[in-house]
């Protein structure tokens, strides 16, 4: 086991975000305030935070779209500041975004999946194999000749994921991949992500504000105001009900229920995040 991603005290702010008032420049607003995070190979990490917590900015540091103003991001052993290694980095850490419409380039599904490979100059024959494999992995092979606008949101998002896994990355960073999808689309995408993690050993970093999605990860990182405030297994993270609520996040309903009941002097295990666990725990006191 080694790190695929290592961030060493990274700070970030946008250059132009200061206001000039009567000639006095107010200090720039830091969006990331020193993030130290190691992500292991094969891990499934969920990054939680409300809008504006810095989670998307953090994600963009993981494949050298943004470079830290201070501190260092390592992908494997490559410093993201090394510009001539950016294609290496982006091949290793692929990225999927929120809006399914705005990340599909080509007018045919398979050509879109091939897009990155075309850019990397992969031989057509090898490319054909990789594109077919990627489409099969996300279960979109039969749609390979469709036009993107004929697909549902969930299907488009799976095409976008196929476009990334065709590069054979070690890690995929997904920035709120389900925020614009309906429940069915969300399920499709989540299933795909879990499968890629389990069957292909691809490291997953999923940025989200859906608690039920985070509950399925191996590890949950909670960000607030540009800092990591919690970093642990889901059970442990969700037991901090008050803290999560104070930073504008929710907890799964079952966790909240147990928390509320405990307030009344009941003594139930706090670390409950699934329905089954909740049913078991309640059976013990109710039966």
């Amino acid at each position: 086991m080694g790190n695929i991603i290592k961030t060493d005290d990274i700070h970030f702010y946008y250059e132009n975000e200061y206001s000039v008032e009567e000639g006095v420049e107010s200090p720039v607003k830091e969006i990331l305030k020193g993030i130290n995070l190691d992500i292991n190979k094969g891990e499934f990490v969920a990054v939680l935070g409300h809008n504006g917590s810095g989670k998307s900015t953090f994600a963009k540091h993981l494949n050298a779209i943004l470079l830290p103003k201070k501190g260092t991001v390592y992908i494997g052993d490559i410093d993201t500041k090394l510009e001539d290694r950016h294609f290496d980095i982006r091949q290793r850490v692929g990225m999927v975004f929120q809006n399914p419409d705005n990340q599909i380039v080509a007018t045919v599904v398979e050509e879109d999946v091939a897009f990155a490979l075309e850019n990397l100059g992969v031989e057509p024959k090898e490319m054909r194999n990789r594109v077919d494999d990627a489409l099969k992995a996300v279960d979109m092979y039969e749609y390979r000749e469709h036009a993107p606008h004929q697909l549902s949101g969930g299907q488009k998002q799976r095409v976008a994921i196929a476009g990334v896994i065709a590069m054979r990355p070690e890690c995929i960073v997904l920035d709120e991949p389900t925020a614009m999808l309906d429940p069915k689309g969300r399920q499709e995408v989540l299933k795909t992500i879990r499968m890629l993690n389990k069957n292909f050993g691809i490291t997953i970093v999923a940025i989200t504000h859906y608690m039920d999605e985070a509950a399925e990860a191996d590890r949950v990182v909670v960000m607030d105001e540009g800092e990591v405030i919690l970093d642990d297994i889901p059970k442990e993270v969700f037991s901090h009900v008050e803290l999560l609520k104070s930073v504008g996040l929710d907890v799964p309903q079952v966790t909240e229920l147990i928390y509320e009941l405990n307030k009344y002097g009941l003594n139930i295990d706090k670390q409950i995040i699934t329905e089954d666990e909740c049913v078991e725990a309640l059976m013990k006191i109710l039966a």
Partner: peptide, 10 residues
């Protein structure tokens, strides 16, 4: 958005 996605895909 598209420009960003294209950059990410090299």
């Amino acid at each position: 958005d598209l420009a960003l996605a294209m950059t990410c895909r090299c």
